[in-house]
Design a binder for these strands. Structure first.
Lengths: 334, 334
DNA sequence: TGAGAGTGTCGAAGCGCTTCGACGACCGGC
DNA sequence: GCCGGTCGTCGAAGCGCTTCGACACTCTCA
C-alpha cells in the first residue's frame, strides 16, 4: 500500500494510454471518451496514484496552497482565531487547496518568501490592524490576497469582516427596545485601542452613533482582562451612573469577570442590569446567566475570505469590501 | 521589485557561474571558494532571487514543509492549541521548514493525501486520543511523524507531552507541604474522560497516587464548564467534605468559575481553600487571586516535537517517548 | 619531478507533471 | 466522393531545481 511512490507514467502504462491523457482525465481540460476515462481512473485507484504536488506546481505554476497569516500577539482573542483558521482550512479544502500557516514572527519577510518561492498561490490575512505593516507589501505582490479585518486605508485591497459598527448598534437598539435609557460599552483592553485595531474602534463608533440615534445616554470604556480590574471598572461605573441599567460587553476574556463582578456587587442579571455581549457563542452559552449576544461569525467570515481569494485567483472581480451583518441571539441576560 | 520571477539560471548568468554552482552555494553541499560564494550571493540579492519551492521539491524529493494536524473538536482547550501551533510554526521555521495546517475534518484521508503527494516531508499531530484513528495510519506511512500526546499503545511511534502524572503529583505535593490534608481534583468535563483523552486520565492517576504517597485524603472529580455546574460541584464538594482545604483545578475553562464560586460561597483563597491550577500562565495570572499553577509548556512541547521530527527526517534515532517535567509557579492562591 | 590527493567548478541528466501542437478517425454536407 | 470540422489521443517540450560524474587546477610528498 504505502510502497514506492507511483508516477503518472506508471498509471499511463497500466491503462495503456499516454501520460498526457492521464493528465487530461485528472484535470478535465480536454474531452476524453468515457471508456478511456474509466480505464484511467481504474488504473489510478488500482495503483494508488497520488499526483506529486511539487511536479504539479512546477509545471502548472499553481501550488494549490494558500497562506493563512496569523499574528500571534498578546491580548488576542485566541479561540476566535482558531475558529477562523479552522473555517479557512475547511473552505480551502472545498476548493481543493491546502493551507500553509504563517505567523507574524517572521514579519513581512515570511509573506514575501512564500509568495516569491511560489509556495502559495494566494494569501488570507487575519486580525488586520488599522495601520498594518503587511498592507503595503500586499499591494505590490502579484499573488491575490484577502484580509479579514479592515486597515485604515483599504484602497486596492479586498477585505471581509463582521460589521462591528452594526453589531455595536444592534446591541444598543436591543437594549433600547427593552426600555433601558442609560447604558455602557465595555470594550477591549486599552492597549488594543492604542494599537488601532479596527474592530474595537468600529464597535465603539457604532455604539456611540446608536446611542444618539435612540436618544440614550451612555459611555464607552476600555476594559482590562483581570478580575480585579474588571471589578473596579464595573463598580466605579455603577457608582458614577446610578441610572445605568444596560451593559454591552465586547471583550471575550472579560465577559466572565463582568458577570462575577455584578454578582458580587449584588446586581442581578437581567433584573438590575441587562447584559449583551459581542462574543463567540460558546462563551455566551456557558455564562451564567446565558448571555444575549451578537456572535462572531468566524465560520462565515473564513469561508467568505476563501471564496473571495479563489475568485481572485480565477481572475474574476470581487467587491473590495464585504461586511457581514450581525445577528442577535436573545438569551437570559436581557 | 515584484517583477517577473527570477530563476536560478539568471542568477548564474549574472554571477558568471554555472547553475549548479549557485545551487551548491545555496545548499552548502560542496565546497565553494569564498570569492565565488560572494559573487553568487551578491547576484542573488541584486536580482531578488527566491528558489522556486515546487522545483526544489521535485528535484530534491524534499518539500521542506511539515504537516500540523489539529483535531478541531468540541470541548477542546483551544487557546492552548493555538500556542502549540504557534510554537510549532516558529520552531519549524528555525529548521527552514514551513507548516501546512490540516484539520481532522478530512479524517485520515487528508493525512494520506499530503503524505502521498509529497506535499509534506513529515507530520506533527496534536491532541492525540488514547484510541486514535490516525495512529495505525502513521505506522504504515513512510513519512516520519511525532505525536503531541500519548495514545494507548504508542509502540513504534514518537510521542512528546507534558508529564501530566507528574504535574498532578506535583500539585498534591505542594498542597501537602502547605499542610493541607484533604484535597480534591477538579478535572476535565466528563465527556473528555469518556473519550479517553490521555492527559486528563494521567493527571488524575498522578493525583491519586500522590494522595496515597503523602497520606492525604481526597477525591478526583470531572468538572463541567458552565458557571452553574461548576458552582454546584464546588458547593457539594465543600458540603460533603468539611475538612477539605485544597483544590487542584485541571480545567482551563472552569478555573475562573471555580474562583467565582468560592467567592460566592464565602470561602477565601488561599485562607479557607488553597487552589492550584494546571493551566496556561496567562489564565493563572489573570485570575483573582493569581493562581499557583503548573503551566502548560506549549512552547517547549511544540519546539521539542519539531526537533524530534527533524531528527527523524535526518534518519537519526529518537526516543519513543519524551515527557517534559512539570514546573510549579507559586502565586497568591496557596 | 611526477604521482596522488584534494579543491572548485561545470555540464547534463533527470525529478513528475502540464500543456501545446499535431494528427488520425470519424462525421455530415454538398 | 471529397472537404472541412470535431473529437480523442499522442508525443515532446519544457517548468526550475538538485545532483552526479567529469575535469582542470593546485598542492603535497616521495
Amino acid at each position: 500500500m504505502t510502497g514506492r511512490t507511483v508516477t503518472i507514467s506508471e498509471v499511463a502504462k497500466h491503462a495503456g494510454v499516454a501520460v498526457s491523457t492521464v493528465s487530461y482525465v485528472l484535470s478535465g481540460k480536454r474531452t476524453i471518451s468515457a471508456d478511456t476515462r474509466r480505464r484511467v481512473l481504474d488504473s489510478i485507484s488500482a495503483l494508488g496514484y497520488h499526483p506529486n504536488a511539487g511536479a504539479r506546481a512546477l509545471a502548472s505554476k499553481r501550488s494549490n496552497v494558500i497562506a493563512l497569516v496569523l499574528p500571534l500577539r498578546a491580548g488576542m482573542h485566541v479561540p476566535v482565531l482558531m475558529r477562523f483558521a479552522s473555517a479557512v482550512v475547511t473552505a480551502a479544502r472545498r476548493f481543493d487547496h491546502d493551507v500553509l500557516l504563517l505567523t507574524a514572527d517572521e514579519g513581512t519577510a515570511g509573506i514575501r518568501r512564500v509568495a516569491a518561492s511560489a509556495l502559495v498561490d494566494a494569501l488570507v490575512l487575519m486580525d488586520v490592524e488599522l495601520d498594518d505593516r503587511r498592507v503595503p507589501l500586499l499591494r505590490e505582490l502579484a499573488e491575490p490576497s484577502v484580509l479579514i479585518g479592515f486597515p485604515a486605508s483599504p484602497a486596492g485591497l479586498t477585505c471581509v469582516d463582521l460589521d462591528f459598527a452594526a453589531a455595536g448598534a444592534r446591541c444598543v437598539e436591543h437594549l433600547a427596545e427593552r426600555g433601558h435609557e442609560e447604558i455602557a460599552l465595555l470594550g477591549a483592553p486599552s492597549v488594543v485601542y492604542e494599537r488601532g485595531t479596527g474592530f474595537a474602534d468600529r464597535t465603539r463608533e457604532g455604539f456611540v452613533a446608536a446611542l444618539d440615534a435612540h436618544g440614550l445616554t451612555g459611555v464607552a470604556l476600555p476594559c482590562e482582562e483581570t478580575f480585579d480590574e474588571v471589578y473596579e471598572t464595573v463598580r466605579d461605573l455603577l457608582l458614577d451612573r446610578p441610572g445605568l441599567s444596560g451593559l454591552v460587553v465586547h471583550n471575550e476574556a472579560a465577559v466572565g469577570h463582568v458577570l462575577a463582578a455584578l454578582r458580587q456587587l449584588d446586581r442581578r442579571v437581567p433584573h438590575d442590569v441587562a447584559v449583551v455581549a459581542i462574543c463567540p457563542d460558546d462563551v455566551a452559552e456557558r455564562a451564567s446567566p446565558p448571555l444575549t449576544s451578537v456572535p462572531i461569525p468566524a465560520e462565515e467570515v473564513g469561508r467568505e475570505a476563501v471564496r473571495l481569494v479563489m475568485e481572485k485567483l480565477e481572475g474574476r472581480p470581487v467587491p473590495a469590501s464585504t461586511l457581514l451583518g450581525p445577528l442577535l441571539v436573545i438569551r437570559a441576560s436581557t
